[in-house]
Design a binder for these strands. Structure first.
Lengths: 337, 337
DNA sequence: CGGCTAGGTGAACACGTGTGCACACCGTGC
DNA sequence: GCACGGTGTGCACACGTGTTCACCTAGCCG
């Protein structure tokens, strides 16, 4: 295995370029050049140095290199809710893509009480960028990032500030299209299961529903407030369905729709015959056989791709104008409409 | 908002201690001392410097500080499968706790093709520790970490190597206890829905089942291979149930159990009357009203706490002996047994 | 009033790397 | 033989911080 013999109490230091230089009988500069592409260095010398480095287990220290004024390759991701299936899947995808680009994502749980101080502390690192996925951030932090010239890219909650780019799903187009489909299908008495009052996504998704209803001369029959979770959707839907006679329930996200679907079935309602239940996001559970939920896809792949594009563009042109990229939704017609 | 005026093409540099020193009319050393606790510095001077720093938006650069030989406060988390609900919840909890301890987790998606090179690249940063959640890592990398004196803590797949600590759930005790409970309940014809062949957790969980069956003079009636996903569990269970008459199906994890539960219901089997279906992990979905799954809890809180304990102990005593901490499971008796 | 202590301060160094600059070497063309 | 251009290479600096070391001042005691 390893030939390293631990010395009690004194932990071995990291191998530095100097040690490699001494071992290989060259100057420290040569070692540095051996690891930088396009530097003048004799080919034989380069391979020699690399061999010695491999034996000693040397890697250039990224911290010291980052000090040089270039990029640190560190990217912070501020996650609104680490427990939400959508955010989790989103972050998983984003992390994988960043890894592939040699960017190293530092995660910050935006849900905890310490979120504000955590983001404050992580700003001590010279980050290449800060990516926001859902959740909200104080204007202070935003302006601080601007001062540090740290590019910010927000997804899920648009931020209007200089040097902040946004990736935004066309929420209202999605729910509007879905509502139109349900109307065309003959549904007339609509209910809406909303998310928390201060969630941007819930409000704008509702807007699309109202727009479509108004155009058809209809209006919302019932509305209830949920918390974007399955359990919350279950109890909210139970209450709503027992007090109002509706034939279509549009939920602000999939998690609540899954809860609502279960509640409807428990109450003896046939879905989709008596009632259509639809969600938003198309999380992986929506396609599970026991749900087979009709929903509006909020595409993760496209959003992540656009985030990386925006990041690249801003790193190339730091002073550029803020951009907002819109992502088209897709109707996913399964078995509950 | 901010008084920062972008200069086209020339991005503003980060504020350094020197700039603060000049602005406040003190030495650079004084600025450094103003931000380190317990350093000799006149109180009035300290508050003055901090005020100026706040106005300029100065924060000590963590990269430069990390170069000093102390800790970098960076911790890498290698995640076996970013799409698995259990791993995702685990990592979410871990990230939150690390944030609270002022440790900054760099995530690496261990699922992708690039996982091996990614971990190799991230080792260029002087990490305080490397935490493994599931997935497997080459012996090369492990010995490399040892050489660098980077503490490694593995959860979900024990690694036997010097300087590697393990947090390990008592898998077989959990499934053994569960099997005993089912036997006591009168079940006699057992099936097992296994995970991928090379998964440590699946094999050892099966071991507990076999142990309990043997003690009761029973044996496994049927077994099928799944892939630890809901869809996989659904199809594997369908096949297994249509070819074997069993009254208890033990699944290697919850995701497959949820799939199996759905398959059983689709096939007209009454759960738990005709068939009991149980899982392992107690992921959040297990408690959803439509499943209400009986399962063995693989406690995330306790595991994460122990990881942090081990981390603290190893940072305090770098040369210490490897430790393995075992985590007790808990039977969660819901509605499917 | 002299010596001593304790608190306060700035210069200087160390951390590990990338790179500009000057210089050495070598082959070629005149 | 000499000028010249191209290739290698080492020295030295820069990056931004924490910390040691020497020094200074003020205050107190004898």
């Amino acid at each position: 295995m390893s030939d390293y013999i631990p010395v009690h109490g004194q932990r071995p230091r990291r191998v530095t370029a100097r040690m490699v230089a001494e071992a290989a009988g060259v100057s420290r500069s040569a070692v540095s050049r051996a690891f930088t592409d396009g530097a003048y260095l004799d080919d034989k010398k380069r391979t020699k140095i690399r061999e010695v480095a491999a034996i000693l287990g040397y890697k250039p220290n990224a911290l010291a290199a980052g000090l040089q004024g270039g990029r640190s390759h560190l990217v912070a991701i501020f996650v609104g809710d680490m427990r939400s299936p959508y955010d989790t899947a989103f972050v998983g995808q984003l992390v994988g893509e960043l890894n592939a680009l040699n960017k190293w994502p530092i995660l910050i749980d935006g849900g905890g009480q310490r979120a504000a101080t955590a983001i404050e502390d992580v700003l001590r690192y010279p980050l290449d960028a800060l990516i926001l996925r859902g959740g909200s951030m104080s204007a202070d932090i935003v302006s601080q990032c601007t001062k540090y010239a740290i590019p910010m890219i927000s997804s899920g909650r648009p931020i209007e500030a200089p040097d902040v780019d946004n990736v935004c799903c066309r929420h209202s187009d999605g729910t509007k299209e879905m509502t139109e489909t349900l109307i065309r299908q003959g549904r007339t008495r609509f209910g809406f299961l909303a998310g928390p009052a201060d969630f941007y996504s819930s409000a704008i998704r509702k807007g699309g529903v109202l727009e479509a209803l108004k155009a058809a001369g209809l209006s919302l029959v019932a509305e209830s407030l949920g918390d974007y979770t399955v359990a919350g959707g279950h109890s909210s839907a139970k209450q709503l369905l027992s007090s109002h006679a509706i034939d279509a329930l549009i939920c602000a996200n999939d998690a609540m729709a899954i809860g609502a679907l279960t509640a409807a079935r428990e109450m003896g309602l046939a879905v989709p015959k008596d009632l259509s239940v639809v969600g938003f996001d198309d999380i992986s559970m929506a396609s599970w056989p026991m749900f087979d939920l009709t929903t509006v896809r909020n595409p993760i792949d496209a959003s992540v791709t656009e985030i990386l594009n925006l990041l690249e563009r801003r790193l190339a042109t730091p002073g550029k104008q803020s951009e907002t990229v819109f992502i088209d939704t897709q109707l996913v017609l399964r078995a509950t409409h």
